[in-house]
Computed example of a mutant assay.
Amino acid sequence: MKIVGTFLKRLYDSIRREPFRRKIIIAPSYIEGQSWLMRICRELGPVMNVEVQTVQSFVRSQVQFSLYQQGLTLIGEQRSFWIIHHVMEQMASKPDSYIAVNQVKPGIAMHVHQAIMDLRRAGVRAGELRDDPFMSQQKGS
């Protein structure tokens, strides 16, 4: 199947416009971006000076030095997952906790982590969150 007139053809044309300038393709995942490049090279011809990044990796590369200068460190998804897991265990050890310590499993922590990351990506800050919309205040906390 030829890719003439498609997104990949337009991408190829953009890449070839300035062959010696560094280009970054921002893709949903590294695998998908690499797949785009392989298909372009196979069906349209070689390209050079092209790098694949995700939105997260691009942003990280842009802010990492600035954060370092401020004495801050950007943590990754895995590290934030285990921090959230640890916080959930600490909260579960309290007597009036919504969930028992033995119920804090990686699967449950993964869903809480995903919800927190979605809120962070949406720009919602912790101070803006309230626990009153929940049926149980312990669940909200």
Rank of each mutant, 00 (worst) to 15 (best):
L129C: 11
I99N: 01
V63D: 05
V52S: 00
S93A: 11
E89S: 12
R39E: 15
R39L: 13
R21G: 10
Q69A: 06
Q56P: 07
V104S: 00
Y68F: 15
S136M: 11
Y98F: 13
K94D: 02
Q34K: 02
Q56L: 13
R125N: 03
I108Q: 06
R79K: 07
Y98N: 05
R125C: 05
G123P: 09
M48P: 04
L129E: 10
I3R: 07
Q56T: 10
I116D: 01
I24S: 02
I75E: 12
V47F: 02
Y68I: 14
K23F: 01
V101C: 10
H85P: 05
I116S: 02
V59Y: 07
G76I: 07
S66T: 10
C41G: 14
V124E: 02
M135C: 11
A115Q: 04
S14L: 12
I83Q: 10
E77S: 08
G127T: 05
R79S: 08
D13T: 11
F81H: 01
P28E: 03
D132A: 14
V104E: 00
Q70G: 12
R79Q: 09
V52P: 00
H111F: 08
I15V: 09
F58Y: 09
M38F: 12
R125Y: 02
F7S: 11
Q70L: 14
R130K: 14
Q70P: 06
Y98K: 06
E18N: 15
P46V: 11
G76Q: 05
V63S: 03
P95M: 05
S61C: 05
M110E: 12
A92C: 02
Y30L: 05
D13N: 11
Q64H: 02
Q78Y: 15
P28H: 06
M1I: 03
Q137V: 12
Y98T: 07
I75Y: 12
K2I: 14
L72I: 06
R21C: 08
S136E: 10
F7V: 10
M110Y: 14
R42H: 01
F7Y: 11
V50C: 04
E128M: 11
S29W: 14
F81D: 00
D131P: 03
Q53H: 03
M38R: 14
S61N: 04
S29N: 13
Q69R: 08
Y12L: 08
D96R: 09
E128G: 10
R21V: 11
K139F: 15
V87S: 01
T6A: 02
I40T: 04
H111K: 08
I3H: 04
E128Q: 15
Y98I: 08
K105F: 13
K2M: 13
V47T: 04
K105R: 15
S57I: 01
T73C: 06
I40H: 06
